[in-house]
Amino acid sequence: MTGMRLAAVGFAALGLAGADRVVVVTAGGADYVLAAGGTLAEMAGRGAEIHVLRLTNDEKDSWRLTPEETAARARREAEAAGALLGVKSVTSLGYRAWELGAVSFTELRDRIMLFIRHHKPRTLFIPNPHTHYDRVLDRYYAGRAAEDAWRSAGVEGVQPVQAEAGLQPHITHDVYYYAPPVDPERRTPEASATFVPQPKVVEIGAGLAKKIAVAQVYVTANESLARRLEERLRTSGRRLPVLDEITPAAIRRLVEENVRGLAKLAAAGTGYAAAEEFHYAGIEFRIPASYR
């Protein structure tokens, strides 16, 4: 990769104080856990108060369950996963999964903005709407709305009725954009550090075991993944020995391999053993170094 410049930053540089608040916006499923679970586990361990806003109901990702049953299980699993991760609250908005494209952008933005104004986070984690080749477009719609919610939450004139409910404008200092690592250009630095988030890699060695355990809580979607993978391999004359018998233990093993694989990909070129990668908008994003 030509011109690659990684900002490999450990937790010493995160500047987290014990009482910091964090808001995570997720389209659904285990998205935020797979992309940022290690970082969030570390933050929770340091005393951060983390609130997750889950936009959709995950009703479609299961194996031979109705949408209603899938949604009910997915919600229970999302809440259990959050609790294990050390998250203080998981709030579900209940939009139908994989149909966010039909939801008004402004409606979605304003609901995320309300959440931000209510919790007043120092740090936001949002899906990266600028990533390429992520085939789940709910993440794009969620990220686009969340990005504007971050901006608009600090603007008094946007949804002034929220002030009537006691919500004041709020500016979030740090934003971590997360995405599955499917974009080959994801580590190419953007044009300028000012007003454009930059690639950032966070070491997660200490949080990797917790991240694996949390990802394994999403039993319904994980079984769907395992069975679809086994079906694809079987119908094309192949097999993955660990899935010869699809047991809960085999599925957990698959999830562990997935999380370890993601951590290895993110750590590539950094010297870390396990990491997560983001686009990060911190102080450089707002104030050029020459003015500080």
């Binding site: 085939r135 690592p181 993955l240 698959l254 694989g261 990909l265």
Partner: peptide, 10 residues
């Protein structure tokens, strides 16, 4: 390609 974490393992 939608399973980047599993590609090497697979």
């Amino acid at each position: 390609d939608h399973l980047p974490g599993l590609k090497e393992y697979l």
